[in-house]
Design a protein around this nucleic acid. Sequence first.
DNA 1: TCTGGGGTCCTAGGACCC
DNA 2: TCTGGGGTCCTAGGACCC
Length: 422
Amino acid sequence: MYALVDCNNFFVSCERVFRPELEGKAVVVLSNNDGCVVARSNESKAMGIRMGTPFYQISRLADCGKLQVCSSNYILYGDMSDRVMSILADTVPKIEIYSIDEAFLVLDGIPPEKIRPLCLSTVSKVRKWTGIPVSIGVAPTKTLAKIASHFAKKYKGYRGVCMIDDDRKREKALSLTPVGEVWGVGRKIAPKLREAGVETALDYVCRPETWIREHYMLAGLRTWMELRGTVCVEAETETARKSICTSRSFADMIEDEDEISQKVADFAAHCALKLRQEGTAAQDVTTFLHTNRFRDDLAQYFPSATVRLDTAANNTQEIVSAAVRALHTIYREGYRYKKAGVIVGGIVPADAVSPSLFGFDPEQREKNDTVSRIMDKVNAAGKNSSLLRLASQKSGDYTSGIRSEHRSRRYSTSWDELIEIR
DNA sequence: TCTGGGGTCCTAGGACCC
DNA sequence: TCTGGGGTCCTAGGACCC
């Protein structure tokens, strides 16, 4: 059996831990640039505010006091997530962290009669120790555990824990679940399924295997099996990630190549830092640009280009230089750019980098690596954002220049702000 | 006026090889 | 005039997730 532990309205709940006055009120948390809604309290859901709603469409609700608004504070959420996950890791031998607010507990070897009490006590322990409310869904497959967690969240009577542990409960749950809410059925496939007469998850599993295979191939088949109780989405084996992306929308559109280049350098430097932090190096560096897709009165352009390094690297100079080179091949005058980003791929462990046969200069590489190491040391020791950076970077802070007018303080991580609050 | 960011996996189709 | 077949590898793009 699997248990999916899901933090309720996670970002909102994090804000409420430090601002109890938000309890019981309609609250939303906004994406970067205060762009759109990425988390809602039950009260704001009840007001009909949808996930992803652009903030400007509901800002009058905030103006008249009916809605509380928070800019996102990912440092806080990451820290709260770590606290929740470490509690979960102490409850069972194996957990798989699935996202910032979800984890699967692997319940192998736990006697069936002990599962519910264990989950109930986990719900109250996490609440008590972190302030975060969670719901737990238990079932034989991950896809069913997801569905169970929806019920745990929706109906108070479950006290946060819903189990699907026999066929009668499974069929009941599937019959009450719209097919579009199933894990693995997204916004493209769901309308097609409904057209074909498949409204609920139960309708889906009642279709013959051949029909599923014909229309939805492997992914659809996997979902079909999982909903019938056969495990297809196995326990994860720890795999290194394959790419790292740093990108941002700009508060205002940018036309100037030099200005974009400085931003791209910041994004690339952040990717390089992440590589060093996890002890990996990247072979490929991709830079992409976006014009403003919502402005159909403006010319659109969504280019990207990849530079393949001769030898995988993680030092800031080489990653930044490759990203800027890629930018120069795609930049065109006459467009107003709204977003840019850098993706590093072909990731390998840093100690397993194989030097290129041609033109690899170990001395130069060693110099570059040393400079990055020293930059890391200085930046880690420094307070606030007085960062050591390359001249080609803009501010050294890839998050600079974005709107964030409702941000909470760094309650959990910044000593300065704590003192200021006191 | 104002519309997020970071990932993974799968498939189709082209390049290439014998 | 007549011009094969089968396999692998790589990549771009789409769909999905949170």
